[in-house]
Amino acid sequence: MDEEYDVIVLGTGLTECILSGIMSVNGKKVLHMDRNPYYGGESSSITPLEELYKRFQLLEGPPESMGRGRDWNVDLIPKFLMANGQLVKMLLYTEVTRYLDFKVVEGSFVYKGGKIYKVPSTETEALASNLMGMFEKRRFRKFLVFVANFDENDPKTFEGVDPQTTSMRDVYRKFDLGQDVIDFTGHALALYRTDDYLDQPCLETVNRIKLYSESLARYGKSPYLYPLYGLGELPQGFARLSAIYGGTYMLNKPVDDIIMENGKVVGVKSEGEVARCKQLICDPSYIPDRVRKAGQVIRIICILSHPIKNTNDANSCQIIIPQNQVNRKSDIYVCMISYAHNVAAQGKYIAIASTTVETTDPEKEVEPALELLEPIDQKFVAISDLYEPIDDGCESQVFCSCSYDATTHFETTCNDIKDIYKRMAGTAFDFENMKRKQNDVFGEAEQ
């Protein structure tokens, strides 16, 4: 370990593993360490099931009705991949897709007046949907046509809207959309967690709705994908990429100290040895004095023996409960997957309800979601602090990732990755940087 590296990475969460992969592909010498004996950090999948019970201090362990412990891979952080989103792009560019198998999530649902409705995925579904009345549908269709044709580089498509100054509230007004449709559009399509976006320039919202539609167009059922064997497969896929390009991995490796000289990182000390480096990437748990708390998320993992009611017996789905429907500031989400994804025993389902904490009784906040899941065989409640770095790391060369937020997709995580890359490399992130180099010394032969 007593060696000189360009970059040392602490923690094998998804953000850290993707950055480690990119740095290795770009010719950097990388050492990647984790104090845990497993990959994934906060974003790991726990197996066998006995391990999950232990982690949540349920000492009696799983009953026999849960089947074989080894058949379970339970995500600690519930997220899906947008089919046309940035993480899929990263997987394709790096060819990490060859280590993973994905399934399309069967449906996306939205909560309205105590019931759940399928988010329409085709024009026919939209016309048949009970989510809105006849005239509302016509106006909504006009709005969707506007979004589909919108091109930020072609003012002819703006229809009198200025993407940089017109607020989204004004765009909704222009198409005369009612409150329910606005809730549905902002939260189930643009996937905002709160209503803060309404008074911001509309460009980002329009682009988010386009991303949803384009992702949906790829597979038809929903815009989301999920990897077989759980999300823990993602960091491992990128760790393989890093290793192929010469990255060194050490799990179960305690970090005793991060060594600084004149305010700059110069190395990491572990078990009496020092590895030197020019730059350091880590998750917040490794540098508690360089991060601040930015809120909390509650996630309740529920094991069920039945599909969720009114989802047409889907073996995977997402449910969004827009905040307006339950008098909150932030949406509540449910991600459900099952034995069909090799993450649970035969006939079992895993539904994870999550939201940003707003009160001193977080469990009560998630109740509307839990009511949709009854009866629940077993619950595991996790309340996590969200951390963000206190500075950009440019001076110390210590670059810290943000905690995983309450969103049900990876777009915010990818933004964090691109942002850290830019601060480390001094140049904007470009997907081309992730391409495997042809015929290089570490390149794998085609399968």
Rank of each mutant, 00 (worst) to 15 (best):
E3L: 14
C277Y: 03
P120R: 02
R240L: 01
Y421R: 12
F429R: 15
N342D: 10
S43I: 06
D101S: 07
G272I: 15
P307I: 07
L19I: 14
I18S: 08
D289L: 02
T311N: 00
F56N: 09
D419R: 09
E273I: 04
L31F: 03
S222F: 04
K156N: 06
G21E: 13
Y197N: 11
V343I: 15
D405Y: 02
Y421T: 08
G232T: 15
C202S: 13
E16R: 02
T185A: 11
W72A: 03
N262E: 14
L191H: 08
V268L: 06
C400Y: 04
K253T: 12
T360A: 10
V343E: 01
L91I: 01
S215I: 00
I77V: 11
V265G: 02
Y192H: 12
M132L: 06
S213W: 14
M336G: 12
Q447R: 12
R70L: 06
S270P: 03
T412H: 06
N310L: 14
N433I: 13
I116M: 03
D289N: 09
M23V: 07
P375R: 00
D419T: 09
Y93D: 12
K437E: 10
S24H: 13
R98H: 11
V96G: 08
D162I: 14
A369T: 06
A425G: 11
Y245H: 09
K210D: 12
V147E: 06
R35P: 11
G347A: 11
G295W: 13
Y99I: 04
L81F: 02
E159N: 12
N149T: 11
L131M: 00
D416A: 08
D183E: 10
L280H: 15
E395D: 05
D34N: 00
L100M: 03
S121T: 11
R70G: 12
L304A: 07
L370Q: 11
N439Q: 01
Q346H: 10
E271P: 04
V326F: 11
S44H: 05
C202W: 06
Q323P: 08
V366L: 11
E3P: 10
I383N: 10
A345V: 08
P307L: 08
K269L: 08
Q164P: 12
D313F: 01
V265D: 12
S396D: 13
N439T: 11
M260K: 10
L87R: 04
K309N: 05
L216S: 03
S384T: 07
D34Y: 00
G272A: 05
L372Q: 02
C317V: 05
K118G: 03
S213P: 06
K54E: 12
L52K: 03
E363C: 08
P368A: 12
L372A: 09
A126C: 13
P235R: 00
L100P: 05
A351V: 09
S213K: 12
N153D: 11
P322N: 13
F442S: 12
I303A: 13
L59R: 06
R328G: 08
S316P: 03
D170N: 10
K103D: 13
V30F: 13
F399V: 05
I332V: 12
L10E: 01
K348V: 13
L251M: 01
T185N: 00
G85C: 02
R98D: 00
D176N: 13
I320V: 13
I209V: 11
A425I: 11
I303V: 12
N153C: 09
K28R: 09
E371Q: 07
